[in-house]
Design a protein around this nucleic acid. Structure first.
Length: 452
DNA sequence: TGGGGTTAT
DNA sequence: ATAACCC
């Protein structure tokens, strides 16, 4: 038996004109999924909540709840009235301000990045990590006398037999140990519990992480892949197949994963377009070659507020000022500067499901400059810009009825720190481009376009 | 359905 | 700018 073979050596990815050998085939991916994340953060903030049924409320919804509450029949995204009816002892905390959740969320991602830098966030409470390289290193450290005593950490999906002569099994077992170490670190350093799934791609890792539910982990061995995907009761449960696609598939008579596997590729491509069709049909077989993409710093900040009714310009301005105040704090913390601002609205409509409209524009350069600086009045010009965007979307001479307002800062650009002797100077990209001849054309053009 | 996020078109 | 996806 050889421990090192089996990966097809591919030559891809030209990085800086260098051809780097990459092993593209057998990956080890972990999906980490925190247990009822917002509720956990609240229980850490206030330990008195720990042994009580707890729900986190946003507007009239219980968006998540702890396991005490779940035992008593409370479900995620349940109406507050229904939840209180089911469970009169339910303790509710308001979770509309995401600040503490966001901060804890990034602590988790950073902790995982210490194991391996390739970490992709999915929402606030899930992360994928590509463990392939880490596993490979441990495999090379593995002594041959240790091999016969190798065991799994946590559950094996289907309770499948482990073959220690199968290199794919060995890799995944090593992955399961790394998963256990990650969960231990999350608990010891942050006080958080969660589930983990280890498999050969993101789809399967995600599906298998949910098999044993709070605070447990599961590894999927290749032979049980089909069992896993066929354990889904409906195609809508397949990550990547959302509400719209599921509806269209149903119209084609496709309900189960097997229906999708056996459906004509040609017809599917004609109905959904080649891109979606090919992607989701591969998903139906458990195939997913999408890489784990390091999320890095956020690409946009937004704050939103929903309400029953907002129908005057004065109200709109007040809401925008509130949203903006929070956003400016966040921008200040981040250090980078947004170069674009967007206003998003949702209009009241009795039927038409969930449609938002938005208008965006560049942030004038003189406003950008003031953004990080405490708060020498950047509010006024920003509110003016946002009200103009608002009037561009909504005819204020006609009656209107909004149910949501959101402000988003995006197109974030780093400040360039230029080493110049004892002092560092912060320069905007355009200035930096002038002082450094190696940075030019595209950035210059981009900046000047936005300024005017 | 809340209050966020991402990528593709 | 919108539409789809994710939580």
């Amino acid at each position: 038996m050889e421990l090192t073979g089996s990966g097809e050596a591919g030559y891809s990815q030209a990085v800086h004109d260098q051809v780097v050998p990459t092993r593209s085939s057998p990956r080890v991916i972990i999906h980490v999924d925190l247990d009822c994340f917002y509720a956990q953060v609240e229980m850490i903030s206030n330990p008195e909540l720990k042994d009580k049924p707890l729900g986190v409320q946003q507007k009239y919804l219980v968006v998540t709840c702890n396991y005490e509450a779940r035992k008593l029949g409370v479900k995620k995204l349940m109406n507050v009235r229904d939840a209180k009816e089911k469970c009169p002892q339910l303790v509710l905390v308001n979770g509309e301000d995401l600040t503490r959740y966001r901060e804890m969320s990034y602590k988790v991602t950073e902790l995982l990045e210490e194991f391996s830098p390739v970490v992709e966030r999915l929402g606030f409470d899930e992360n994928f990590v590509d463990l392939t390289e880490m596993v490979e290193k441990r495999l090379q450290q593995l002594q041959s006398d240790e091999l016969p005593t190798m065991t799994v950490s946590g559950h094996v999906y289907n309770n499948q037999y482990i073959n220690l002569h199968d290199i794919l099994h060995i890799r995944l077992l090593i992955g399961s140990h790394i998963a256990a170490e990650m969960r231990e670190a999350m608990y010891n350093q942050l006080g958080l519990t969660g589930c983990a799934g280890v498999a050969s791609n993101k789809l399967l890792a995600k599906l298998v992480s949910g098999i044993f539910k709070p605070n447990q982990q599961t590894v999927l061995l290749p032979e049980s892949c089909q069992d896993l995907i066929h354990s889904l009761n409906h195609i809508k449960e397949m990550p990547g197949i959302g509400y719209k696609t599921a509806k269209r598939l149903e119209a084609l008579g496709i309900h189960s994963v097997r229906d999708l596997q056996t459906f004509s590729s040609k017809i599917l491509e004609k109905e959904l377009g080649i891109s979606v069709a090919q992607r989701i049909q591969k998903l139906s077989f458990g195939e997913d070659n999408s890489p784990v993409i390091p999320s890095g710093p956020v690409q946009s900040f937004s704050e939103e507020d929903s309400f029953k009714k907002c129908s005057s310009e004065v109200e709109v301005k007040k809401k925008i000022e509130e949203l903006l105040a929070s956003l400016l704090n966040r921008v200040c913390q981040d250090g980078r500067k947004p170069h674009t601002v967007r206003l998003i609205i949702r209009r009241y409509s009795s039927e038409k499901h969930y449609s938002r409209e938005s208008r965006q524009c560049p942030i004038p350069s003189h406003v950008i400059q003031k953004l990080g600086t405490g708060n020498c009045d950047v509010m006024t010009p920003m509110v003016d810009i946002l009200m103009k965007l608002f009037r561009n979307m909504v005819n204020v001479k006609m009656p209107f009825h909004l149910t949501l307002l959101s402000v988003c800062f995006c197109n974030l650009k780093a400040l360039h720190t230029v080493k110049k002797g004892p002092m560092d100077y912060y320069l905007s990209p355009s200035l930096s481009a002038i002082s450094h001849s190696e940075q030019h054309s595209s950035e210059m053009k981009d900046t000047s376009m936005e300024d005017f």
